[in-house]
Design a protein around this nucleic acid. Sequence first.
DNA 1: CGGACCATCGGGGACGCCCCTGATCCTGGC
DNA 2: GCCAGGATCAGGGGCGTCCCCGATGGTCCG
Lengths: 222, 222
Amino acid sequence: MTDQTGRSQLIGVVVVDDHAMFRRGVRAELEAAGAGVVEVLAEAADVDEAVRAVDQHRPAVVLLDVHLPGGGGVEVMRRSHSVDTRFLALSVSDAAEDVIGTVRGGARGYVTKTITGPELVAAIARVSEGDAVFSPRLAGFVLDAFAGSIDVAAVDEDLDRLTEREREVMRLIARGYAYKEVAKELFISIKTVETHMSSVLRKLQLSSRHELTRWASDRRLL
Amino acid sequence: MTDQTGRSQLIGVVVVDDHAMFRRGVRAELEAAGAGVVEVLAEAADVDEAVRAVDQHRPAVVLLDVHLPGGGGVEVMRRSHSVDTRFLALSVSDAAEDVIGTVRGGARGYVTKTITGPELVAAIARVSEGDAVFSPRLAGFVLDAFAGSIDVAAVDEDLDRLTEREREVMRLIARGYAYKEVAKELFISIKTVETHMSSVLRKLQLSSRHELTRWASDRRLL
DNA sequence: CGGACCATCGGGGACGCCCCTGATCCTGGC
DNA sequence: GCCAGGATCAGGGGCGTCCCCGATGGTCCG
């Protein structure tokens, strides 16, 4: 992953940002603090340029601006084909939606532009080895989005109104079982399944098995 | 969040680990390196003890062993009621499943037992302020689990076989729209919707709209 | 120009989903 | 003992889903 020919192979980097001044600054910092470690292969100022640069140079790491003309940094990750390239977001924004959106898009790290040169070099090195690099504050957003989205209390309140049998039927229906299959699985008749489903939908105030699927999926009951 | 009465309020900590020797070591380190910053309120050796200790002392931070008799650290988080308590996993294990499981369970951080005293004090301080604390290597697991579950290449391969119109119909059906509603939305007849759906199911090798819903949901296309 | 592919639509059929009424049996509580 | 609620089942109806058959017109390409 790190090298094949020897020990101290340079880490190829592509810098993507729509401000030429900022790209110049990053390049200068990397050449000063990262001499012998990283090598800037190319720069890009928008999505199209970035995709071309990445596909051509196949860098180990892409420093990626989040707010980029032509679709944002996410669009670059979506359209690039280089499989052994890692993306490190480098943004002024520390907004939760930017961080989460970028991570969902496939970024392996997210640092703000307040970072120093040596810190950036260290971050690049870690990302190129497959680690993720986040400031603790930003990682918090990601973890909230990851673990947070369940309201246990609300689930229980609704769920408690269902009887045991109704919950069994509900679970199978939400998984995509047909009434016939549920009946066979639970050793009861289709008509009984229909009765239970009718109760489930009424109690949960839903109107179809499709809504039930989404309801259960939102609550991670599958 | 940090204090009400003054500036330098101590951060209350409960230490949960089934090895007395280790708890003693942590306590000693915290009293040495964390003097004036953290205060160990209680210790616990299993899940039941831990839940009682947390509910009684309502600490700002719980140092939580992952492999704990009686259900593991996750069980402690599940059964505790103290809402302003943050959990910091402290484990020998750096296995991905442990890290991810613990984060899913609600932990705000995860450090290994190779950590030094001062580092641990710093981690506790950050967690108590709401930040997440992860070593870069461990954060990588979490981010993989978060963003990774999508195989972009595979999606494109399947998705590219669909025509533009088929994708539109597919998206609406996967969201739970009835054929009739899709028809109205796209200004076409129900019969045309049926035709497109037939193609979608055939091309994606699915057999019902329910499977399609799960297929799309697995790929976050909703 | 003919063939491939796409989008559009129709008829008809088998079966699934959802609701209605109505029924039996059992269990637990007042 | 009666009443409530839960689990079981039946018949029948309206509509949704998914398939079969077929058709027309458009575009693009060799």
